[in-house]
Nucleic acid binder design. Structure first.
Length: 266
DNA sequence: CCGGTTCCATCAACACAACC
DNA sequence: GGTTGTGTTGATGGAACCGG
């Protein structure tokens, strides 16, 4: 019942918090920065910001832990969040139940993070099964993405995505259809720089899950392995990026407030 | 041409079934 | 016992439409 006290949360947090650098995740985007600012100055956020916050965190979760993160991972994220921003503590026994609650008494796990994760999975599954979803208005490329999409249509989609962020499902569909084209384009002429890539495909960063969707599209056989070994793979990727001289830009863009909190994993 | 209203698509959140 | 999948519903925001 009232199992939890603040010292409980503290213990839990000390154990789990290093897994998620909440601030760094949020500082990676403009909206994330606004949310952090609001949390610091007003000690509150509006519901729109809360939804955006959940999107950013779940997007990070998907990138780093795959589609079905463990219960502990999800709990760690929720705990890290309310530890970092105590004003987000809720009235539930644990203090973070509104963000993540494990299932109990035949009731499924719930909370904003869990629900977002579930809805994201649902959407991704729908996208992966185009055959099932054939009653589209446009008679365009339902089955294998891209192979039968004419080049001009590809360019049309790319241009559309430069100026449109919504509807999200449309963005995800177009990103899906242009994944192969994007891969070729990025690697053409000795590979593109990060700013070049983000100018051509801004939705890669601001629409959650697009990078993993691309990887899924290009290397479906390796997705599982990548997710499982992400901790070591990410190091190798960073090392490679550094060697290629691309890393400084990445850090400049994504972690402007990289100061004190050196989070070394246990 | 502009402001207000209606219509429509999307998504978050909920509820329950299916599964391990 | 719990988690994941899926259908449903209400809220929200943008597009289209209409009257002044």
């Amino acid at each position: 019942m009232e199992e939890s006290t603040s010292s409980n949360l503290l213990t839990e947090t000390l154990n789990l918090q290093p897994s998620f650098a909440i601030r760094q995740i949020l500082q990676g985007t403009t909206r994330g920065k606004e949310i952090v600012q609001s949390l610091e100055e007003k000690r509150s956020i509006i519901s729109k910001q809360r939804k955006q916050l959940v999107r950013l965190l779940v997007s990070h979760l998907l990138e780093t832990n795959g589609e079905t993160p463990s219960t502990d991972t999800k709990k760690a994220l929720a705990v890290a969040l309310v530890y970092e921003f105590p004003c987000l503590l809720d009235g539930t026994g644990s203090g973070y139940g509104a963000w993540y609650t494990t299932g109990r008494n035949h009731k499924p796990a719930t909370g904003f993070l869990e629900e977002r994760l579930r809805n994201a999975r649902k959407r991704m599954r729908i996208l992966k099964r185009p055959r099932h979803q054939e009653q589209q208005k446009e008679p365009t490329v339902p089955s294998t993405p891209e192979y039968d999409v004419p080049p001009e249509k590809l360019l049309e989609m790319v241009e559309w995505m430069k100026v449109n962020r919504y509807p999200v499902s449309q963005v995800e569909d177009y990103m899906n259809q242009t994944a192969l084209h994007r891969g070729k384009w990025i690697r053409s002429n000795g590979s593109k720089s990060l700013p070049e890539i983000l100018t051509e495909f801004p939705r890669l960063l601001d629409n959650p899950g697009m990078i993993s969707q691309d990887f899924q599209q290009l290397h479906p056989e390796a997705v599982r392995e990548l997710f499982q070994n992400w901790a070591t793979m990410s190091d190798q990727i960073l090392t490679y990026a550094q060697r290629e001289g691309k890393l400084p830009l990445v850090f400049d863009d994504m972690t402007p407030g990289l100061e004190e909190k050196s989070t070394d994993p246990p």
